[in-house]
Simulated assay, not measured.
Amino acid sequence: MRTGPAAAESGYFHEALCYASDDELLAVAVPFLLDGVTAGEPTFVALGERTGGLVRSALPADSGVEFLTGAEVYARPTAAIRMYRKLLADLTAGGADQIRIIGEVPPPSLGSTWDWWARYEAAINRAYDDWPLWSMCAYDTRITPPDVLADVAATHPHIATARQRHLPSPDYLAPESFLRQNRPAPPDPIQAYPPLLQLTDPTAAQARSAVHQAGPGQLSAEDLDDFVIAVSETVTNGLRHGSPPVRLRLWTAPDRIVATVSDTGKGPDDPYAGLLPPADGRPGGLGLWITYQSCNHVTYHRDADGFTLRLTAGQPPGLTAVAQSEPPGGERRPGGSGDQQLSSGTRP
């Protein structure tokens, strides 16, 4: 039998926990976790090293709460979705009536790669809805930018507060509506310069060869192989499902490779393309699913010229410029607290 505010739900109860102090985090997280153990529910923590340590130290010894490595769980959105879907399926197959998880995306992800984590937060409303999950996604308002908090409010149906209240989010959008928004991502700074290489209507083999030529020195052999697959799959999708011409452009920096693949079509109709595995097993959606798991950042946009996917392997720019893993002492950025409602580089 399900417990807490999720008792009336048949699927996923998805909450945001936006806190302005370590005490506020613990005031919500500790009862949430201990109540789950008391109810016999599988109960997990997938927080970062600092916040996970705070929670661990606040719990009694041998509490029964299981700890996952947050940085590994949230390495990439699709990797997190794949891991959690398997975990949830295994636990419910074992008889679990409800599962509790509190987690957080790594603080650096609140910066230049936030757009695909925002899509993750929207997509999991569907991705996890087959299982009796109650999760809290923790966001420290001292280090979370206001635009990120607005996305949090739009992607979480519920908000947990420091006063043990569980409120509906007035700004919540259905995931399909959120995912269909055309949200242009800032260009990588190296895109201000002419691309190292540009090909029009390349074959998949030509695309693979181009990445192999550009990649040595920027990436490890394993990461380069993954990126070759991602670019090849994206070019193949453009040729099969897009409108000509299909253009591949490559830029390189000492720590990354950026590729864009564009065509004059409108892009995939499925708002979950890339984030969820194809439901019916057709190969049309499999390429993007593979691509999202093979890159360190994937973003897209539509404009008058058509549809463009941008793939990044290596270290996306600006990851440490916006958020630090340790909140600044005594300093708070704008954001929610207590029961407050959320509202809406250079080339080398």
Score class of each variant (00 low, 15 high):
A6L: 08
L17Q: 14
D22Y: 02
A27W: 05
A27N: 13
V28W: 11
V30R: 00
V30F: 05
L33M: 11
L34N: 02
D35I: 07
T38S: 15
A39K: 00
G40K: 02
G40W: 06
P42C: 05
A46S: 08
L47G: 03
L47I: 03
L54G: 07
R56Q: 09
S57V: 02
A58C: 00
D62S: 02
S63K: 09
E66D: 08
F67N: 03
I81N: 00
M83N: 11
K86W: 06
L87I: 03
L91K: 00
L91C: 03
G94L: 06
G94T: 05
A96F: 01
P106A: 09
P107M: 10
G111C: 12
G111M: 04
S112P: 08
T113S: 15
W114A: 03
W116Y: 14
E121V: 00
E121D: 14
A123E: 06
N125A: 14
R126A: 12
Y128I: 02
D129K: 01
D129S: 07
D130K: 08
L133F: 04
L133N: 04
S135D: 09
C137H: 12
C137K: 00
D140M: 07
T141F: 08
R142G: 05
D147F: 02
V148L: 07
V148I: 12
V152D: 01
P157W: 12
H158A: 14
H158E: 13
I159F: 12
R163C: 10
R163I: 00
R165N: 14
R165K: 15
L167E: 13
S169M: 07
S169V: 09
P175M: 02
E176D: 15
F178S: 01
F178T: 02
L179F: 00
P184H: 11
P186D: 11
Q191C: 11
L197N: 10
L197G: 09
Q198F: 04
Q198Y: 01
Q198I: 08
A204I: 06
Q213A: 15
A214I: 12
P216A: 15
Q218C: 15
Q218M: 15
E222I: 11
D223S: 12
D223Q: 15
L224C: 03
L224Y: 01
D226C: 09
F227L: 14
V231A: 09
V231W: 06
E233Y: 12
G238W: 02
R240D: 13
G242W: 05
P245S: 04
L250W: 07
W251P: 04
T252S: 15
T252Y: 03
A253P: 04
R256D: 09
I257F: 05
I257K: 04
V258P: 01
D263E: 01
G267L: 10
D270E: 12
P271V: 01
R282N: 13
L286K: 11
G287T: 10
Q293R: 14
S294A: 14
T299E: 08
A304V: 14
D305C: 08
Q315G: 04
P316L: 03
A321N: 10
A321M: 06
E326D: 12
E326A: 11
P328C: 03
P328F: 06
G329E: 13
G330C: 10
R332P: 00
R333T: 11
G335A: 13
G338V: 07
D339F: 11
Q341F: 13
R347S: 13
